[in-house]
Design a protein around this nucleic acid. Structure first.
Lengths: 197, 197
DNA sequence: ACCTCAAACGGACCGTGGTCCGCTTCTATT
DNA sequence: AATAGAAGCGGACCACGGTCCGTTTGAGGT
């Protein structure tokens, strides 16, 4: 998911200066295009032109359009993850685990609404790859464990995350289901799971 | 989802003879290509050539590649839906609702495994559109109601279906999670929801 | 300073999904 | 049977994602 060079692999030489510069140029250009014309306007040719580099360079740096989108998404995701890990409760630590879990759902839904189009663009053929949701799974799993929920926690955590995924949220919104209904039902679902131990 | 003309809308004139013939030619051709070379080999040009018609015709009949794939999928889906509606229990009617629900999950997972690549190809930008899962939602909703589960049943039903969606199943399989774990966890999840009323 | 060569670059090129529009064919009407 | 016009057809055309490869550039060694 990350486009940074592997931070802890000392065998790999660091990125060359021009490569690093071009990465920044490209990210800035892409960000600008998203802000100005929306995600759909971010074609690989457009971002290359906007950054003033060749198209091949975009693919060299980000691998694919989905990779570039993931990189864009990462900025926001990292900040959001920061709030989950060390922000104020109930989303951050300090609140009871159930409160944190419910706050997590609401906050995650919010992020899906705000960055849904980027998430769609960052997804490969079949939905978001597992690394992309690893943090989410790990966090939910952790909270479930604190709540003494038993079972196959990794898979259960992902099952609880699925209804909040952009692939399910956006179509429902289009069909007229409100944000509130989705959130209320998710809260309900989580309560049932937790209460059943 | 269906590519048939609207059966009960008498205002719309039926499909012209040549159009109907070409639809069949195209479906046959596409089916042949899937069988012989896999879903990825089914390009719009290839299916047009195989059917001996122009490319424009393929788009006129099916709207998009996803539409064509949906049409291919429909054959299997319809047969499967038949088994759910009127096949032998516990999947079909006659068994207790909870048994039916659990059998539904297992059977659905099976279909996801068998036709996953077609499902992926049939999905638009964001996952499968709601009409494509309308039957699934309706059935699960019905069973939940029979089990006296309260709440926002349409949204709850979709939430239970989400973990069985190809977008979540395939990545897990690739990551080494077994079919059995996925099914067991889904069964567990459903039991918790039902038991909590 | 110079050399070396892996890394990076750029843009021509390709395959594929999707559109467009002038031409053809079917069908309802008389 | 003739006719009109809607429905359908085909394939040239376009945009976009992705690849390839000859050229350039930057960093470590001498």
């Amino acid at each position: 998911m990350s486009t940074e060079p592997p931070l802890f692999d000392l065998r790999s030489r660091p990125e060359r200066r021009d490569a690093a510069r071009n990465r920044e140029l490209l990210l800035d250009a892409a960000h600008r295009l998203v802000d100005r014309d929306g995600v759909d306007a971010v074609t690989m040719d457009a971002v290359a032109a906007e950054a003033g580099v060749g198209k091949g360079t975009v693919f060299r740096r980000f691998g694919s359009r989905a990779g570039l989108m993931s990189a864009l998404l990462d900025h926001g995701e990292a900040r959001w993850q920061g709030r989950v890990i060390s922000g104020p409760p109930p989303l951050g630590p300090g609140a009871p685990a159930l409160d944190r879990l419910l706050a997590f759902g609401e906050s995650r839904l919010e992020r899906t609404l705000v960055s849904g189009d980027l998430m769609v663009a960052a997804a490969g053929r079949h939905g978001r790859s597992l690394p992309a949701v690893a943090f989410l799974v790990a966090h939910v799993r952790h909270l479930l464990a604190e709540l003494d929920v038993t079972g196959d926690l990794p898979v259960l955590a992902l099952s609880l995350l699925a209804p909040l995924d952009v692939a399910f949220v956006l179509p429902q919104l289009e069909a007229g289901v409100t944000r509130e209904r989705i959130l209320a039902t998710w809260t309900d679902l989580v309560r049932r799971v937790v209460e059943a131990g």
